[in-house]
Design a protein around this nucleic acid. Structure first.
Lengths: 187, 187
DNA sequence: GATGATCGATCGGCACGCCGAACGCGCGCC
DNA sequence: GGCGCGCGTTCGGCGTGCCGATCGATCATC
């Protein structure tokens, strides 16, 4: 059994489940036979790009989405801003990695400016949407409601944003960079 | 002629040219027949995922790279830190859009710390790589070589990083937050 | 319990994707 | 000019991807 078929199988199953479609629904919407979808999802198929294109369109997914390694965003992931940052000597420069993540779909970047004592409650985005937040000035709580984490300056957090989530300044105003990574067919 | 085949054709041609391989080279490396590659690159093929997988591996590309829409990021896009951002009154908040772009592959965030009088010249990343820079402290020039823009504190810039590019502090040390959005097979 | 609808999986037949071989062209070398 | 090599394209044959039909299981309704 090869890896290509496994990847495609997992992605099609994931998108179909998220769209709450049966095999028959997807077959009807995509014009691809149920037999083909069944073997494809079982990871024993070797579909053509025309078949993938038809399936992706029916699922409202991007063409390349069906070939990406699946991601799982279940928890709040934090990287502290002071970890691994080297203070430069005179005239020197430092470039230090904070964080790395796979990107999918459409991404938007925002400045979030929170006044002192401000709590901002955001509604859920589409399923699969992920947010990345970096505190640029001040300190803030952020994350899904009920799972807030405290972030100091230059701390990074990543959390699912397909549920209600919150940004809240701590002890004075705060300023953050927010990167919203929508599921591939949202913008 | 359908769009799926056009996308794959353009991507394979692009990656093969970049790797400086002939059809015969790619055929030999991938185990896919020249005839198949020729029709595929002409946009008249309908290859299976097994064929794509073999080709992607031979080209050192990611599987999904062969299905992505080519992107063109030609210019430096700047949002000034004070533009459109409302100074928050007590208890108020502001959320302002910096930028929106299709995300592909891996994204990394970095702190860039530049000493006084420092110019850092970075080499090109893979084709399609984009960088987003926010000045957190001080001021800096940044952008592709020959197209530097001046950024003050909290200014944001987005520019193509698949060519030589520069970060340079102005009038003292500077600290920036950098987000690198790589083409899918880079990290 | 019988019937109908829907579910995902399996079956056999046909069109087509991919193969190796051959083609026509351009280039460099003798 | 002739030859050999490498380029991308074309050709015919074989294996397989995809089709409609069918299967067995489950559920809801009468």
């Amino acid at each position: 059994m090869d890896r290509a078929a496994q990847i495609v199988a997992a992605n099609v199953r994931h998108h179909r489940a998220r769209a709450q479609l049966s095999l028959a629904d997807l077959a009807r919407l995509s014009g691809v036979a149920k037999a083909t979808l069944s073997s494809l999802e079982a990871g024993v198929g070797n579909p053509t790009i025309q078949t993938l294109w038809s399936i992706a369109n029916a699922l409202g997914a991007g063409f390349s989405d069906l070939l990406v390694e699946p991601a799982d965003e279940a928890e709040v992931h934090v990287v502290r801003g002071t970890v691994g940052v080297v203070t430069p000597e005179d005239g020197a420069e430092a470039i230090e990695l904070y964080s790395r993540w796979p990107a999918r779909g459409i991404t938007e970047s925002y400045a979030i400016v929170l006044g002192e004592g401000t709590r901002y409650e955001a509604g859920p985005h589409a399923m699969g949407t992920v947010e990345h937040l970096i505190v640029v000035e001040g300190a803030a709580f952020a994350g899904p409601a009920g799972k807030l984490v405290r972030l100091e300056r230059f701390d990074y957090a990543r959390f699912p944003a397909d549920r209600p989530h919150v940004y809240e300044s701590i002890d004075g105003p705060a300023r953050c960079l927010l990167i919203v990574s929508y599921a591939p067919h949202q913008a």
